[in-house]
Design a binder for these strands. Structure first.
Lengths: 68, 68
DNA sequence: CTTTTTTGCAAAGTTTGCTTGACATTTTTT
DNA sequence: AAAAAATGTCAAGCAAACTTTGCAAAAAAG
């Protein structure tokens, strides 16, 4: 899944590690999500969105999930 | 995690099975999420929210996840 | 240019989400 | 009251999310 995490992180000049710490996960998890290796869990997605002051839908791209 | 799924489903007079079919999952998965046995994945949460014409944050309750 | 920080990736292992099938109980319909 | 539909639950098994450790390359800082 595509996300705006890397973009938002760079805007704020944060490293993956700083973001990871802020949302209570590991650097590798952030890397994997940024790179699209796997999709964040609902709770992690929420924490990341909240950290940036945005909604989940504003951070994660669901355009490939549209069968509605 | 608490959700409004049951409430929204009843408003629309849908069974768990009908909702499950509509969002491409199984009845047991809907039951488990409604009952709080586990938390939906990000994609499933999105599909459920979209099905009801709402955002993820409007359907799922993250109030217990607030350490920010 | 050298050092330090940051990032990408991989493997092994644990936990969690989900499917399938099956059964018991509750609720709704007739 | 009887039949049918809906719901809750359980167990086995698989897949996906996540952790941990560790290494190599790229980028930033000195």
């Amino acid at each position: 899944m595509k996300t705006r995490i890397k973009e938002l992180r760079k805007e704020r000049k944060l490293s993956q590690e700083e973001l990871a710490l802020a949302v209570g996960t590991t650097r590798q998890t952030i890397t994997s999500i940024e790179v699209g290796k796997y999709t964040a869990s609902l709770v992690l997605a929420y924490k990341i969105a909240r950290f940036f002051g945005l909604t989940i839908e504003e951070v994660f791209d669901f355009s490939e999930e549209n069968e509605f």
